[in-house]
Design a binder for these strands. Structure first.
Length: 473
DNA sequence: CGCGGAACAG
DNA sequence: CTGTTCCGCG
C-alpha cells in the first residue's frame, strides 16, 4: 500500500503488455517456487520493453541478434522500479540484477559497448514453424531414439505454439494464446516460452499465418508469430533458401554454421536428415545469395535440419514460425547410450568435453575461460531432455553454484522424452544487420528444389484435410 | 562503466 | 529463488 505501484496491471509505461491478458506463461514467472509471486522477471521486462515501440528510445534491439542497448539507463531503471515498486531503483542496481543473469546465462554483456547486453540465446532453439508438427515428425521420432527411445514426445503443437509470444504488432491485443481456454492439459502448462518478441527491432513483420494455424490437429487455433527469431530477425523469412532442405531450421545464409559439419557427420538420424545434396556438400548458392557465407570449409551452411516437414519452406514468411525453446541444461551429461547424437554436436561449442560429460562452455573462470560473450559461444543446446519443470532437475551447474540454471528450461510440453534435437546452438549470424535480413522478403525462388516437393505435398495434404473438414461440416 | 561479493528482503 | 542494496575494485 505504500507503494502505489500498480502491481500487475497496467503501469502507465507498459500498457498493453501488462494487461492481464498478456501474461507470460506460468513458467515464465515462477513456476511453483515462489508462492504467489508471479512477478515478472527482469529479463521479461526487458524483453517487453524491447518489444514495444514506445520504448525504442530507451531500450532497443541493436547490433547482433539478441543484442540490445539500453539507451536510457535511468529510464529503464525507473520503469523497472515502477514495475517492482522500487522507487529507488537505479541503473546500478538494475545492472546488478542483469549481471546475475550472466551466470544464469540468460544474458551476457556485450563488451565494449556501453549499456549493451545480449540475450544468450544459445539456449534457445529456434525451430521453424513447420516443426510444429514435430510431434508427428520423423524428426521427433528419431529424437526419441536419442532419448533413449522413450515414448512419444509430446511436443505437441500446442505446446510449441505456446512458446510464441504475442505478436507485437499486429495483434496488439492479447497474447497469442490466452491460455486458459485452451486448457493445455495437465501438464500442458508447463514450460512455455511465450515471450521473445525479438524481432521487434523494427520489423513489423508479424502477421498471422492464416492457413497454417488450423491444420494442427491437436489444437485450437493458434497464431504463430513468425519472423521472430531472436537470432535472426527475419531470417526465417523464408525467403529464399532454395537450397535449404525442407525443414531446415536456419537459412543457410545466415548461419555459416559450425554445426553444419557436425550435422552432416552425425551418425544416424541426423545425417539422414540432411538432404542428400546438402549433406554431401550441397551447392547452395547458386543464386548467389551467398550472403556471408563464410568460406568455411564445406561451406554448408549449417542448418539444423529437421526432418522434412510439410510446408516448411514453401510458405511465405508468414507461414513460418519459430519455436523457441529455452533449454537450460546444456547437454545432458549422458548421451544416450546408443545415440550418437548428442554428441556430434558436443564439440562444437565447447571444448569437447574433457571430462565426463560436461564441461561448461564457459569454463567458468577457471582455466581457459572462454569468453562467454563471444558470439562464438555456440553452445549446443541439447534438448534431449525435455522434461517438465520439476522432475529431474539435474542441472549441471556450471560454476560455482549450481544454482544457475534451473528453471529456465523450457521445453516443449514437457514430458520426458520429448525433445528437440540437439540442434541448437545458434551459430552466430553472419549478417551483421539483422534488420536487413528482415526487410527483404524475397519472393520464393521460382524453381524450388526438389527437396521441397515433399513438403509441398504435405502442404497439400493439409489443405486437403482442411477441405475435407469443411466439406464435412 | 562494469563487475561480483555479501547481506538482506519477499 | 530473484532480485535489491551496498560497496570496493579495476
Amino acid at each position: 500500500m505504500d507503494c502505489n505501484c500498480v502491481s500487475d496491471l497496467l503501469l502507465p509505461p507498459v500498457p498493453a503488455l501488462w494487461t492481464p491478458g498478456f501474461a507470460f506463461p506460468d513458467w515464465a514467472y515462477k513456476p511453483e517456487s515462489s508462492p504467489g509471486s508471479r512477478q515478472i522477471q527482469l529479463w521479461h521486462f526487458i524483453l517487453e520493453l524491447l518489444q514495444k515501440e514506445e520504448y525504442q528510445g530507451v531500450i532497443a534491439w541493436q547490433g547482433d541478434y539478441g543484442e540490445f542497448v539500453i539507451k536510457d539507463p535511468d529510464e529503464v531503471a525507473r520503469l523497472w522500479g515502477i514495475r517492482k515498486c522500487k522507487p529507488h531503483m537505479n541503473y546500478d542496481k538494475l545492472s546488478r540484477a542483469l549481471r546475475y543473469y550472466y551466470n544464469k546465462r540468460i544474458l551476457h554483456k556485450t563488451k565494449g559497448k556501453r549499456f549493451t547486453y545480449k540475450f544468450n540465446f544459445s539456449k534457445v532453439v529456434l525451430v521453424n514453424y513447420p516443426i510444429l508438427d514435430m510431434a508427428n515428425s520423423p524428426f521427433f521420432l528419431a529424437q526419441n531414439h536419442f532419448n533413449g527411445g522413450s515414448t512419444a514426445p509430446d511436443c505437441s503443437p500446442e505446446a510449441i505454439q505456446s512458446l510464441f509470444p504475442r505478436l507485437p504488432d499486429s495483434g496488439r491485443g492479447t497474447s497469442l494464446f490466452d491460455r486458459g481456454t485452451t486448457a493445455p492439459g495437465p501438464e500442458g502448462d508447463k514450460l512455455r516460452l511465450d515471450t521473445f518478441p525479438f524481432l521487434s527491432s523494427g520489423a513489423p513483420c508479424y502477421s498471422k499465418p492464416p492457413s497454417l494455424l488450423g491444420p494442427y490437429p491437436r489444437n485450437p487455433p493458434f497464431d504463430y508469430p513468425w519472423g521472430f527469431n531472436p537470432y535472426l530477425p527475419g531470417a526465417f523469412s523464408l525467403n529464399n533458401c532454395p537450397k535449404l532442405p525442407p525443414g531446415s531450421l536456419y537459412p543457410s545464409q545466415f548461419y555459416p554454421n559450425p554445426l553444419q559439419s557436425s550435422l552432416s557427420q552425425l551418425p544416424h538420424p541426423f545425417s539422414s536428415l540432411l538432404p542428400p545434396g546438402e549433406a554431401g556438400g550441397g551447392e547452395r548458392g547458386a543464386a548467389g545469395q551467398t550472403g556471408g557465407t563464410n568460406g568455411t570449409a564445406g561451406g554448408q551452411p549449417a542448418r539444423l535440419c529437421l526432418p522434412t516437414y510439410p510446408g516448411s519452406l514453401s510458405m511465405g514468411r508468414t507461414d513460418i514460425g519459430n519455436v523457441v525453446t529455452l533449454v537450460e541444461r546444456e547437454r545432458v551429461e549422458a548421451n544416450p547410450p546408443g545415440s550418437g547424437l548428442s554428441l556430434g554436436l558436443a564439440p562444437v561449442g565447447l571444448g569437447a568435453g574433457n571430462g565426463t560429460g560436461q564441461q561448461s562452455p564457459t569454463e567458468r573462470r577457471g582455466g581457459v575461460k572462454q569468453d562467454p560473450e563471444s558470439d562464438s559461444d555456440l553452445e549446443i543446446t541439447d534438448l534431449s531432455d525435455c522434461s517438465s519443470e520439476n522432475e529431474n532437475e539435474h542441472e549441471f551447474s556450471i560454476g560455482k553454484e549450481s544454482r544457475l540454471a534451473n528453471r529456465s528450461q523450457i521445453v516443449l510440453d514437457g514430458k520426458k522424452g520429448s525433445v528437440l534435437p540437439p540442434i541448437s546452438s545458434l551459430p552466430p549470424p553472419v549478417s551483421p544487420h539483422p534488420l536487413k535480413s528482415l526487410m527483404p522478403i524475397t519472393p520464393p525462388p521460382p524453381s524450388l528444389p526438389p527437396s521441397l516437393s515433399p513438403s509441398m505435398a504435405l502442404h497439400e495434404r493439409h489443405r486437403e484435410t482442411e477441405t475435407l473438414k469443411m466439406i464435412h461440416s
